[in-house]
Design a binder for these strands. Sequence first.
DNA 1: AATTTGTTTTTTATATAAAAAGAGCAGCCA
DNA 2: TGGCTGCTCTTTTTATATAAAAAACAAATT
Lengths: 305, 305
Amino acid sequence: MSFQGALPVMKTNALFKRSYNQALDMLAGAGEGAPLPSEPAMAATLGISRTTVRAVLSALAMRQIITIDGRAKSQLRLPKRSDYLADADLEPLADMVERKFMAWLVGPDCSPGHVINGLDLARQFGVSTSAIRDCLNKFSHFGLLERQSNGRWRTLGLTVDFVAELFDMRELIEFRAVDRFVALPKDDPLWAELSLLEEEHQAFLADFDRRNREFSDLDHRFHKLVDSAVPNRFLGNIQGVMSVIFHYHYQWNKKDEVDRNHRALAEHLAYIDGLKSGDPARARESCRVHLHTARSTMLSSINVG
Amino acid sequence: MSFQGALPVMKTNALFKRSYNQALDMLAGAGEGAPLPSEPAMAATLGISRTTVRAVLSALAMRQIITIDGRAKSQLRLPKRSDYLADADLEPLADMVERKFMAWLVGPDCSPGHVINGLDLARQFGVSTSAIRDCLNKFSHFGLLERQSNGRWRTLGLTVDFVAELFDMRELIEFRAVDRFVALPKDDPLWAELSLLEEEHQAFLADFDRRNREFSDLDHRFHKLVDSAVPNRFLGNIQGVMSVIFHYHYQWNKKDEVDRNHRALAEHLAYIDGLKSGDPARARESCRVHLHTARSTMLSSINVG
DNA sequence: AATTTGTTTTTTATATAAAAAGAGCAGCCA
DNA sequence: TGGCTGCTCTTTTTATATAAAAAACAAATT
């Protein structure tokens, strides 16, 4: 299945490439002729192992960007644009497969109940079947897929039922978290974090037109903070599903995006007020309103999409 | 397809072996010289594909147990004990790995926080690294493992925290299910199922000494029934964790097993009464009592274990 | 003595190959 | 006509091989 001269690459070296580009950034920051930090120091800075640092360093030396002589490493020249490695495959493989799979899942080639052909997907995405298998395994935990008795995979799709069940769970969890949150002592660090997030919301609102697109991240962080009042690892799982669904679904449903985000932003602020009031009933109500809106927004988005 | 001198076995043919033994059972039921059902019929009976049926049939013919001539298949002799394939590897590979892994996890070779060496486990269990990888992936969804940034696996273990969080979640879900359950119309099929299960509990109690061991299955089915009042696929996930944890943990903690099961059985019956009373407060209370006992039993079992 | 580098050993991630099991089709027999 | 068999093609499951990355170890330098 090799189109061009694709030699057999066994494992993506995305980490190396990312680190290489990061190293170039560091060199751009320093001056020409400047000495480089030691290998362990660089490893710590980049958060990678020394093995990878050494690979990056020899690549830099090969390109005549730095020179290495024992432990004396120095910069020969400033990095140019062309020195950077193309960001084509900088993404970890699993992320790439996940992205393509979600696109396929909500796209026209897949209808709910569709039986998945792993081999075919592998060819389509340009990866091996192992990668597909891992991805399918992951999504089956998210409830988007099902295994039949004969070992085959069937899509369940982003159906109305799925969303309803997901939100039921979400409400169950978040209502409880709200009760716990309002009862937190006033010196709990979560209150400070909440205030910080409130300010972020205000700033977002002030600059809404430009930052509109980044809302889903803010949304995720806000709900995560509320839910953290009841620490529970199983809850994190559900949050992960929510996050993935929201991320991908709204990426392909830009319709009414501005209105949707604007409304959610306002509701978040009311929700924060509710929490800060210390009144459980009021907090619960503001939470209920927001989750209700989120649910119907998602449902209508699925129905038209 | 040779099951004796097989040198490099690439994939376990557990399905074939299980089916082969099942076919022997069928032959033992029929008489000598009796005609065999058609291939599709056997496939349907055994719940496998015709390909596997054909493999079984030719193995039986090879062993001179049956004779095949076109579509005329007939039994030559009754199967002997020695005809059966050894039950060493009749278990699906994934199940075997899961079992061994859980045993390892709660055993002395593994303490919470331990970094897992996949290759080593593969050698220990006599399987390939792929099988281990699949297993680790599965258990990470159960919250028993964690992936570190460097891609390594670390055990979190069956700690007090884990159990506390698991039961928090369970209570959250089951309380809600109870509320919904008592509100079901009296002609809902769930009521009939509940009565059936109540009878099973009574029968269990009458024959407790002998059936004691099978209690965990009954327990699982009971809670599953209650929770089915609120159908939700994410909930099924949590139930799966509970089931696995209970199954393995109590398999190695036989201490006080009789008392533990006896008490749970009594509480289940009270719980069923509570549900049948139709009074939400009473139902909730009997549920609370039982879940509370279950939690403390599990916790104390971990502490002494 | 504490770090740094050079080298070797482990471990993980991925593609590939091959067995096992499933699905479908054409001809055939009752 | 309807179901059965023989055959072929797909799809899934698993083991293995190998590159990437991490970790460990040893020698060298400050």
